[in-house]
C-alpha cells in the first residue's frame, strides 16, 4: 500500500515536471533552430570548392539528458509487452536537436557560416543499473567553415 502511494507520488511529480520541461524545451529548440537556420549543418564529407579556401575549425555540442520517472515507468511497462517506446523517442529527439544547436552556436560564435560532415553520437552513461536507460548523452560534432567574403 505504501509502495503504491510512493509510486503514484513519483509518477505525478515526474509527469508534471517532465511535461512542463519538455514543453519549454521544445519551444526553445524551435525558436533557436529558426535563428540558426542561417548556419546549415550538412552531413556531407566534402565541402564545396572555393576560390579562397576557407579556414576550418572543429565544433562540438553535447548534452546529457535524463528521463523522468513517468516516462521510465511507461517504458518499463512497454518492456513487458513490447512495441514503440514513445516516451523515450521524444527524449532522444530533444537531446539530438539540442546537441546540434549547441554545435551550431559554437560555430556561430567562432564566425563559421556552415558546418560540414556532422556526426551525431549517442551514449547511455548510466548503464549497468539493470537494463534501464537512465541518462543519455548526445554529442554532435562537425567542421565549421569560416568563409571569407571575397
Amino acid at each position: 500500500m505504501v509502495d503504491l502511494i510512493v509510486l503514484l507520488v513519483l509518477l505525478a511529480l515526474g509527469y508534471g515536471f517532465g511535461r512542463y520541461a519538455e514543453k519549454t524545451h521544445y519551444r526553445s529548440i524551435i525558436k533557436r533552430e529558426k535563428l540558426l537556420r542561417k548556419i546549415p549543418a550538412i552531413a556531407s564529407k566534402f565541402p564545396p570548392m572555393y576560390r579562397n579556401p576557407p579556414e576550418t575549425i572543429l565544433v562540438t555540442g553535447g548534452i546529457v539528458i535524463s528521463v523522468d520517472y513517468f516516462k521510465r515507468f511507461v517504458a518499463s511497462l512497454r518492456n513487458i509487452i513490447g512495441g514503440r517506446i514513445t516516451s523515450y523517442e521524444s527524449l532522444l529527439d530533444r537531446a539530438r536537436r539540442e546537441a546540434i544547436l549547441r554545435m551550431k552556436e559554437q560555430a556561430r560564435d567562432q564566425g563559421g557560416s556552415m558546418v560540414f560532415n556532422v556526426k551525431i553520437e549517442t551514449a547511455s552513461i548510466s548503464k549497468g543499473r539493470k537494463n534501464t536507460i537512465g541518462s543519455v548523452e548526445v554529442f554532435a560534432y562537425g567542421t565549421a567553415l569560416l568563409i571569407k567574403s571575397n
Binding site: 520541461a21 519538455e22 539528458i65 535524463s66 523522468d68 520517472y69 516516462k71 548523452e137
Partner: peptide
C-alpha cells in the same frame, strides 16, 4: 543531484560539463 533529476527529467548540467 542526478538521481533527483531522474525523477523530474531534464538536462543534467553537471554531467554535460563533466563530459565536456
Amino acid at each position: 543531484m542526478a538521481s533527483l533529476k531522474n525523477i523530474f527529467g531534464g538536462e543534467l548540467k553537471g554531467y554535460t560539463e563533466l563530459l565536456q
